[in-house]
Simulated scan of single mutants.
Amino acid sequence: MALINTKIKPFTTQAFKNGEFIEVSEKDVEGKWAVFFFYPADFTFVCPTELGDVQDKYAELKSRGVEVYSVSTDTHFVHKAWHDASDTIGKIEYTMLGDPNGVITTNFEVMRPGVGLADRATFVVDPDGIIQAMEITAEGIGRDAEDLLRKVKAAQYVREHPGEVCPAKWKEGEATLAPSLDLVGKI
């Protein structure tokens, strides 16, 4: 899993967004921040809690110039059916990518071998299409959109402030570090 600092690979797929089916490719991601939010399957248990949590932070992510793409190996038709059937999923405004052929899931190296489902994984991608952060958890461990937002803020800060880095638990507005020889062994 050496995906950090690598460019996302090409893909084209059908998606569901705002009551419509649309086509999405890696070209749609170019020039903006993006989050790819992989989950095993629609109509499951942990997945809707996570997707709903991301929706709760979507307006703030959008205000920071970040687009969210949820991804499962379900089709865009299944995404629509889930959107229509579930109160939680019915609130989702971000793009739900269908990946029935597994291209995107395989590109991000989160396809479960022999199962045809994605691992629970999150990727933060910068405007150059480079993966800046990733998180993968086991099937039963849900993720936290608040921490995702913190990682996005840190990635954006580091990009905008070359020579500075964000320490553990860094929150926007807090002090950063400027790595130097004088700092070695002082922390």
Rank of each mutant, 00 (worst) to 15 (best):
G65C: 11
T49L: 15
K32S: 10
D87K: 01
H76Y: 14
F37G: 02
Q55W: 09
K57W: 15
Y39P: 03
H76E: 15
E60K: 13
H76G: 07
R120D: 14
I92M: 10
P10D: 14
A41L: 11
D87C: 00
S70T: 10
D28A: 10
I89V: 12
D128R: 14
A118K: 09
P48L: 08
P127C: 10
E109V: 07
Q14C: 01
D126G: 09
T49C: 14
W82F: 14
C47N: 13
T122Q: 07
V66I: 14
A121K: 07
V24E: 00
W33Q: 04
E30Q: 14
K17T: 12
N101C: 08
F37S: 07
T13P: 01
D126W: 13
L51V: 12
E50I: 11
V24H: 01
A81Q: 01
C47E: 14
H76A: 15
F38E: 00
G114I: 05
E109F: 03
V110T: 15
M111W: 08
I8S: 03
A41H: 12
E20Y: 05
D56G: 10
G31D: 01
T73N: 13
L97A: 03
Y69N: 10
K57E: 15
E26G: 02
T106C: 09
C47W: 06
M96F: 02
G98H: 10
N18T: 05
I22C: 00
V125Y: 14
D119L: 10
C47S: 13
E20C: 07
D53P: 04
Y39F: 11
S25M: 02
D126Y: 13
E20K: 15
N107D: 14
K57V: 15
C47G: 12
G31T: 01
V24K: 07
A34M: 03
I22E: 00
F38M: 00
T105V: 15
D56K: 02
R112V: 09
G19L: 02
K62Y: 12
D56L: 05
F77M: 03
V78S: 10
A81R: 02
E50G: 11
P40C: 05
F36Y: 13
Y39D: 05
S63D: 14
G19A: 02
F45Q: 08
H83L: 00
I89M: 04
Y94I: 12
A118D: 08
V24W: 00
Y69P: 04
T88H: 00
F77G: 00
N18W: 00
E26S: 10
K57N: 15
V103F: 06
V68A: 07
T49N: 14
V125L: 13
A15I: 06
K7S: 09
S63I: 09
K62M: 15
G102D: 03
A118E: 07
P10F: 03
R112H: 06
E26I: 02
M111Q: 09
D87T: 01
L117H: 11
P40L: 04
V78E: 05
T13Q: 02
A34Q: 04
S25C: 02
P10A: 11
G90K: 04
Q14E: 15
E23F: 00
A59H: 12
K9T: 00
P40H: 03
A34P: 05
Q55T: 09
A118Q: 09
F77R: 04
N101L: 13
T88E: 06
F108T: 13
Y58F: 13
G116I: 04
E30S: 10
S86V: 04
A59Q: 15
V71P: 09
E26A: 06
P10Y: 08
V110P: 11
W82M: 07
A15H: 05
S25N: 02
E23Y: 00
